[in-house]
Write a protein that binds this DNA or RNA. Structure first.
Lengths: 182, 182
DNA sequence: CCCACAGCGGAACGCCTGCTCCGTTTCCGG
DNA sequence: CCGGAAACGGAGCAGGCGTTCCGCTGTGGG
């Protein structure tokens, strides 16, 4: 039987981790997450037996957010606005959340749900690119992998000093859009 | 008086560090560099009192390489070929050297010579962009900062798993070039 | 040739990390 | 209201890092 305070503490841990990861990156120490949550490390480890699991939990939310966004774009009747909106909003998201970028870059650390979500995301993106291409708004030879590469490039930029990253991300997003447009 | 074997060992350390940083990234442990060089850690520390100094020494070489490349491009009479060549060769360099990317991204760790070289590099790039713009081969509104942002994006990509990074870097380089071209 | 001393290697120190152990506190069903 | 189980917190452990210390080695000027 799950006790009420346990559930409450779990939520506090997740909230603290979300905030810490977003502002300081995925490498923030477990002690620090526990401190921010106002619990001991043991409590943290009781809910998430390993660091990887905590990261995966928080990342799953972020990745799902991206999925929701892409699926919403599927409803937009204007193919270019839909695709460029996805790119721009993705860039915006990177500026405000340091964790997301490492979710897409780090080698292993993937959960099952995470993988599935990523696949759905890729598929939706394929559809968007297909529509844009059919509408003739894409430069010849541009495919979904090019767009994915562009998104990856935007995500990677999150590493540089915070002061400059925001402006650079914006420029690169524009560059990518200019690069795929007819 | 500097003994001959000391000088020899110093060279071995630099060579080992160069190779290690290129293949495994800047975060490779000092012990590992010493092991590769076939010396003890103390020998390493006698020549480079701190990790940062060793990194700076190796990075200075890399950054100078970039400078040489950009200055050579200044001799190319075709403005677009010169500029696109710089972008492409920069991308190529990233694929083969993991250290260079972190040189441009990491927050602090800069030496004096390093700073100067970077400024010269920036200036040469400004000239190349100026010429390309004068020749009318650039899309309206594109400036040197856009190109720099593109190079930064390419550099950042070096972080993802080696298997995919090469292909993605190539795609992004093409995307950037397409994005700045008229 | 020889021995002072520049130079060497690797054990050791201090710090930080992820993770575990265990005595104590808190919840909650009866 | 009470007792036992669930949950807690923080000290502690193992391992990895950068850096230092110190007794030994081998180079090279006299």
């Amino acid at each position: 039987m799950q006790r009420a305070d346990a559930r409450f503490n779990r939520d506090r841990v997740v909230a603290a981790a979300r905030e810490a990861f977003a502002s300081a990156g995925l490498e923030v120490p477990m002690r620090e997450v526990a401190r921010r949550a106002g619990v001991g490390v043991a409590t943290l480890y009781r809910h998430f037996p390993t660091r990887t699991e905590l990261v995966a939990t928080v990342l799953a939310e972020r990745v799902e957010d991206c999925g929701v966004q892409v699926r919403r774009a599927l409803d937009d009747p204007d193919p270019w606005r839909a695709l460029s909106g996805v790119v721009r909003e993705f860039a915006e998201r990177q500026i405000h959340d340091r964790a997301l970028n490492e979710a897409l870059l780090g080698p292993g650390e993937v959960s099952a749900a995470f993988q599935r979500e990523r696949r759905e995301h890729a598929q939706a993106l394929n559809v968007l690119v297909g529509r844009a291409r059919a509408a003739g708004v894409l430069r010849d030879g541009v495919d979904a992998d090019d767009v994915r590469a562009g998104l990856l490039a935007i995500a990677s930029l999150r590493r540089l000093p915070a002061a400059t990253s925001a402006r650079v991300i914006g420029r690169v997003a524009d560059l990518v859009l200019a690069g795929i447009r007819a």
